[in-house]
Write a protein that binds this DNA or RNA. Structure first.
Lengths: 103, 103
DNA sequence: GATTCATATGAAATCTATTTCATACATCTA
DNA sequence: TAGATGTATGAAATAGATTTCATATGAATC
């Protein structure tokens, strides 16, 4: 019974920075420095995060001159986020409360 | 920009034990001790894991005598697992390799 | 209401993941 | 090819999550 893929995949998304990255890339593909500015985080931190997202094909990269442009694998990620939105509004009253508290 | 819900939800699944629990409950609802036997893990460990799964409504509980019967929120989880299966077979060659290595 | 069975809880120990910082590597341009 | 820009990497430090173990709580039975 080998289901490593599931928790490895989820682990990759279980992190606020990575979720922020995803939510930026949902709008536009962009380079590492652009992301760094948008999210106000240090570059190497982003590179580390992007590396693991890339490793599971949650994002893709292309080279453009000196820049590496990251884009979201929307085919997988968008439906996934939708499921959670639906889940939250239907089942997860506590999660909402938690969200509020964390603000 | 508050997207805590996403990483909180994913965090809950980013763990081998929790994935095992889910995969057992996919087949049958069951009590904590039944799960403990099936998965060969200590009871309190399960209780901790079930608590957080419950907290995000990934599982549900009902009381039956002394026992508490846990069941899976299939409406949310099954489509989610399907997305990952599809993702894996389509995009994630590395994940497969990783899976193999971990065996 | 004492005992037993089933489960939950708290806190310390342990394990895993993220962050940081210094530095290396790659691409482009003068 | 030296310098500048953009990104990646490794390793130590740190933060977070899981596990363990002892114990508490709740439900049923006698």
């Amino acid at each position: 019974m080998n289901q490593n893929k599931y928790y490895i995949f989820f682990g990759n998304l279980a992190n606020p920075l990575k979720v922020e990255i995803i939510s930026e890339l949902k709008e536009n593909e962009m380079s590492v420095l652009e992301l760094a500015k948008k999210l106000d985080v240090e570059q190497s931190k982003l590179s580390h995060a992007l590396k693991s997202l890339k490793h599971c094909s949650i994002v893709n990269v292309k080279q453009e001159g000196k820049k590496r442009i990251y884009s979201l694998n929307k085919e997988t990620i968008l439906p996934m986020l939708e499921i959670i939105d639906k889940h939250e509004s239907k089942f997860c009253k506590e999660c909402k409360a938690m969200e509020a508290r964390k603000k």
